[in-house]
């Protein structure tokens, strides 16, 4: 009896071990890729952020550790401060308010509508999401530039053309980013809303809860985890937006749309200060982590 038990136990253990080996084996390719393309570069970022590495000049030949000089310079640089503020404005307007709320509204309004309507609206919103970023950028440039579609359109009503990208640069890139990104939020919220059992809503209805109360007391608490996940994804995505802004405005006019990724690019590849640019990218990473932690604390999610 006992020997048999021990044997089964051993077999299970063996099974577990071979299971572990198999898991490891199948995970290996992605682990290797992660190591080469993700963890390696991150470690190098930490290293180079503390050097004076440069693309040209004497510092390109003799890389030296300079301690915290890059960071001291950065925090004294008024361009860093203005880029930080620009990034936050862009993040809050286009990411948190724009994509999140618009995506949510779309999902709510599409609930229980007929199928072809859902397909049409969903498809239209998805168009922005599936289009590559560079193409979205060029589309918006030709939509907004001096002789572009929008100016032609308002011209029919007798309005003077406006240089949208120069008069309202931030609004322009925010609208473009909302157009591009709302589909993801919409999809996430759609599936979350579909997962709320009808019985809960019906019970609340019978108890006399109105639409608004049901939204605040039932729907939102029940999709809290989705809100959190979505917030984190959108925040990290928006913090890294480069192509869209760089193509549409180049960070200008002056510094009006110069977010941190653009500031980083300019320092590293236009000013040839690779070490400084790397330090800025490290700060962007830290900002992303801090904001994510903040969300966890604010929303107190369980997972």
């Amino acid at each position: 009896m006992s020997t048999e038990n021990a044997l089964t136990n051993k077999r299970i253990k063996n099974n577990n071990n071979s299971m572990l080996r198999k898991t490891f084996f199948f995970l290996l390719p992605s682990l290797v890729i992660l190591l080469i393309f993700f963890i390696g570069p991150i470690l190098m970022t930490f290293l180079f952020a503390f050097t004076n590495m440069s693309l040209t000049g004497a510092a390109a030949q003799n890389i030296e550790f300079v301690g915290f000089r890059n960071f001291v310079n950065m925090f004294q640089d008024p361009s860093f401060k203005s880029s930080f503020i620009t990034t936050m404005v862009f993040l809050i307007l286009s990411g948190i308010i724009g994509q999140q709320i618009l995506g949510f509204l779309l999902a709510v309004l599409m609930q229980n509508k007929n199928k072809s309507f859902r397909k049409f609206v969903g498809g239209t919103v998805m168009a922005g999401w599936v289009t590559p970023e560079i193409i979205v950028a060029f589309t918006f440039v030709s939509f907004l530039h001096d002789g572009g579609t929008l100016n032609q359109f308002i011209g029919w009503f007798g309005f003077e053309p406006v240089s949208w990208l120069f008069t309202f640069p931030m609004v322009s890139v925010v609208v473009a980013n909302i157009w591009k990104g709302s589909a993801l939020s919409m999809l996430m919220f759609q599936s979350a809303l579909d997962n709320i059992p009808d019985s809960v809503n019906e019970a609340a209805k019978i108890d006399g809860a109105n639409r608004f109360q049901r939204m605040m007391r039932i729907t939102i608490p029940m999709i809290k985890n989705t809100i959190f996940t979505n917030l984190v994804i959108i925040t990290l995505g928006t913090l890294g937006v480069f192509t869209l802004i760089y193509t549409m405005t180049g960070g200008g006019p002056a510094k009006a749309t110069s977010t941190l990724p653009i500031f980083m690019y300019e320092q590293a590849f236009v000013n040839y200060q690779l070490g400084y640019g790397t330090a800025i990218s490290l700060v962007i990473l830290v900002i992303g982590i801090v904001i994510s932690l903040l969300y966890i604390k604010l929303l107190k999610t369980e997972d």
């Binding site: 693309l55 040209t56 000049g57 510092a59």
Partner: peptide, 11 residues
């Protein structure tokens, strides 16, 4: 304008 820097960089 970049020659001097490129020389110092050893390029």
């Amino acid at each position: 304008f970049i020659i001097n820097s490129d020389v110092n960089a050893g390029y």
